[in-house]
Design a protein around this nucleic acid. Structure first.
Lengths: 193, 193
DNA sequence: TAATTTGCCTAATTCGATTAGGCAAATGCA
DNA sequence: TGCATTTGCCTAATCGAATTAGGCAAATTA
């Protein structure tokens, strides 16, 4: 991190450090300027490794999406039904609580090109895999996938924004009960309005 | 908007214009500089009316929260049960679709001081009011409140990020079926795990 | 060791946010 | 109506972030 000779910058290293920086100070504040400061180099030096600030953010987002997909897929492996549902949900939430900056990055608006190379597909596939343990035909399955995605992302988002802190009952309690309720709902999904 | 004499700046007018600007170019891009451009004044001139950029954003957020609470409370008035649930949800989603920038503003992280004077309390009260039509005792009621908040904010967030666009089935279909499923879930909420 | 590549630097530009201080237009008061 | 005061927007200036161009030295290759 000093200034003797070369700092050993790499796109890879910048992105990893950027992700850590995001967890420490927030994704918004994970700027090229701050990142350069951490490496003990001038901001301009980053531009041989990342195209610009947006490129840096995009790469951090892609990293976060991969990591999240890895964690979730590990957690879900070998499980089915409610077990798989809670494993998925907990892995997702844990990642967000442990890596708030990365998680924010994972929600960064990607341009179509970047989105195509992202782990978004894996996420979609995994969510759908959860429903294998429940008996849901299309189009209900898609509706259910969207519900799950909404609940997870919504809950974790609100929790991260401080929505449930310092209030009774505990957030963990709500989370458990909500997962239980979702399990019941998926097993008795109404197929007519 | 010209430069003859005075522009008639007001905190009120800046915030309203800021909200419109946010809907047009995104909340992130709703900056003092851009706002000043729209009014045909120098950026520095805004600083007699708002403390700084953060203050401007906070005020836009507070406006959005009020508007959203107004829309929802109007929609919910005189309804109960599933009727109230869908009215609430649709008002919420409509606001987000019609005013994406304001909706993003409503999620802006407020400092405790601002949060206290916000319509956040109204939102909480209204969500809880929905559940009056369902028979849910504490602490289940709180868990259900959190679920509803998560689903609405999560779904609308994903939809706004383009999560459900260009895919089958239609987002509107999923939304309707999800609301139906939530109604069923609330009526049969599992009180034991 | 010489040649080449590569990495980080300096220099310079542009733009947004912010503060200080000034002048003229609007307003209040005799 | 005329003067004093307030108020609103301006100019000027600073600071910091993002970005580009071009240079020199260190690392790599031959």
């Amino acid at each position: 991190m000093a200034q003797a000779g070369r700092a050993g910058l790499t796109t890879e290293r910048l992105v990893r450090a950027g992700a850590e920086l995001a967890d420490e100070v927030g994704f918004e504040q994970a700027t090229p300027a701050e990142l350069a400061r951490r490496f003990g180099v001038r901001t301009a030096s980053l531009y041989s490794h990342v195209r610009n600030a947006h490129d840096l953010r995009t790469r951090i987002a892609l990293l976060a999406l991969e990591e999240l997909a890895d964690q979730v897929s590990t957690a879900v492996a070998g499980r089915a039904g409610k077990d798989a549902l809670t494993a998925f949900a907990n892995a997702y939430r844990d990642y967000a609580l442990t890596h708030p900056g990365r998680f924010a990055a994972a929600r960064y608006r990607l341009d179509p090109e970047a989105a195509a190379t992202s782990a978004g597909v894996r996420h979609a596939r995994m969510t759908r895999a959860i429903l294998r343990g429940y008996d849901l035909a299309e189009p209900h399955q898609t509706h259910a996938v969207r519900l799950l995605g909404s609940v997870f992302s919504g809950y974790v988002g609100l929790e991260g924004a401080g929505g449930f802190s310092h209030s009774v009952p505990d957030s963990q309690e709500s989370w458990s009960e909500i997962l239980n309720a979702l399990d019941v709902l998926l097993r008795t999904w109404p197929t007519t309005s």
